[in-house]
Computed example of a mutant assay.
Amino acid sequence: MTDLVLSESLAAARTRLAEALNATERPADAARLLAVSKTKPAAMIREAWHLGQREFGENYVQEALDKQAELTELDPIVWHFIGPLQSNKTREVAEHFSWVHSVDREKIARRLNDQRPEALGPLNICLQVNISEETSKSGVSLEALPALAEAILAMPALRLRGLMTIPAPAEGREAQRVPFARLREAFEALRERFPEAPLDTLSMGMSADLEAAVQEGATLVRLGTAIFGERNTR
């Protein structure tokens, strides 16, 4: 992808988000764009950064660390870990990311808490919810969500910010809205249950269903293909 194409695709993604927010009469700053850069080279992240993008999402720990080492001159830049997280990778994530979207069990959260360097401040956490109850996907169930949230709120090195989901694919806007509405309802219930918690983030919506997610209250939308083009094979 050339500089010109990346500039056009990023501008189109921003316009698409702005139009979705406007259509639902939400403020222009009610949701922001997370550029999902997994499998893409560091050079493309650098291009996007120079075009004003500051938040990037990565799925694979070692790939992300390699890119971070290559992009140390980019400041500020905010790294989000959005992929499945194994116990043997928590230290690297705790030490090199600002956000983790894929926490779905207490064991992982406790390791992140214990391994987070104090100098970096609390690690922002979104709990991944298996909203469509798919056996092939990670995520905490809606039933187990309150207990997990309560446990994390007691961990001083973590800051519970909200929820994330990757719903099953659906055809049509109304069908796409259904799982996002369920996540929003769960989010609102958590805010009522834990009024002192800094819950402000609904990480939902990707290239195929951004508009439906925004309609249901997304505050962070994760776009990869729409910005960087088709995913490269790892």
Score class of each variant (00 low, 15 high):
Arg191Ile: 11
Pro122Glu: 09
Ile166Tyr: 08
Ala94Lys: 04
Thr165Ser: 15
Gly205Pro: 00
Ser132Cys: 04
Glu171Trp: 08
Ser98Thr: 12
Ala109Tyr: 10
Thr219Asp: 05
Arg191Asn: 09
Gly162Thr: 05
Arg110Thr: 12
Ala149Tyr: 03
Gln115Leu: 15
Ala213Tyr: 03
Gln86Met: 10
Glu106Arg: 14
Pro198Met: 13
Phe180Lys: 01
His96Trp: 00
Lys89Pro: 01
Thr165Met: 12
Leu112Gly: 03
Ile125Ala: 02
Glu174Gly: 04
Glu143Cys: 07
Phe194Arg: 02
Ala175Cys: 09
Leu190Phe: 05
Phe81His: 03
Glu134Val: 09
Ala170Val: 10
Gly172Pro: 07
Glu188Val: 10
Gln86Trp: 07
Ala151Pro: 08
Ser141Gly: 14
Thr165Ala: 15
Ser141Tyr: 06
Gln86Leu: 05
Glu216Phe: 05
Ser203Ala: 12
Glu150Arg: 12
Leu158Tyr: 03
Leu112Thr: 06
Glu174Trp: 06
Ala147Thr: 13
Gly162Lys: 02
Ala197Gly: 11
Ala154Leu: 14
Glu185Ala: 15
Leu163Thr: 04
Pro117Gly: 09
Ala149Pro: 03
Gly205Val: 01
Leu153Asn: 07
Gln128Thr: 05
Val214Ser: 07
Pro195Asp: 05
Gly172Glu: 05
Glu174Ser: 13
Leu160Ala: 08
Ala197Trp: 01
